[in-house]
Amino acid sequence: MSFAIQARDLGVRYSLRFTKKTSIRRSFTRLLKPDRGEKSFWALREVTFTLAPGESLGIIGPNGAGKSTLLQVLAGIIMPSEGVVEVNGHVSTLLHLQAGFDQELSGRENIMLAGALMGIDHRVMEQREESIVDFADIDAFIDAPLRTYSSGMRAKLGFSIATAVDPDILLLDEVLQTGDEAFREKSHKRIGEVLSAAKAVVLVSHDMSWITEFCNRAILLEKGRIVADGNPDEVVALHMEHSEFRKQRYRAVIKAMRSGEIPVTARPKQVIREAERTGRKLPTGSPQGSSKP
């Protein structure tokens, strides 16, 4: 097999029936009024791509485009609702660096806990322990309970654990810049090392300089679908253009609402969403505003 990751027609559907904190009462209400609102939405749809070994893929897109969902599917945290994802190699996810921490355990114990969570053999983890402690550079605190740590120390420890793993495929969410200036410099270098050591990388970031620096391929996601796939510089440029378009249009809609051109039926964002669904024309704010996002 010559690919690291292959996604075919990948779709993830969220059921709105069980969104955050459902209660039996709300379920009953929904039973009585079954047709209120949509029952589900697709966070990802028809996502197809193949990542070859050695490729480093950046995923960009506006908020709510499905970037994090895609990363979660690749990591196996979420099962696809349709389609197939095949991953060829040991995956490490650095989605959030401090997710597995326990406040009562010491730094050292948290290192072992994180290893156990990620399914890394404890003997391997014991070997790596010293280098993790060294890199985190928090001295005597390493044996104190985590609740005594400052947030900076926590971040340093999280970063050290996350990058000490040695995966075939690395999935990164953007929250990597942590700690003070000196540590940030050190961590920037470390990320570069980890990225070049991994067979394949998928990186999600809002920081375009990361995409252009670390990636040799980029995918632009919008509303759960792949809009562009290719050279990072070009994809980033397209993303900038699209977000500029959205910004202009948002301003134009507000302006039109103020002047009474558009009746104020809802908040501007909702009006835009509604118009996109029905295909109604909206002011775009730019004279050549024909480019569709």
Partner: peptide, 14 residues
């Protein structure tokens, strides 16, 4: 197979 334990994994809605 379990994703984090196995060197390769295959996940499908089917």
């Amino acid at each position: 197979q379990i994703a984090t334990e196995a060197p390769s994994s295959f996940r499908s809605s089917a």
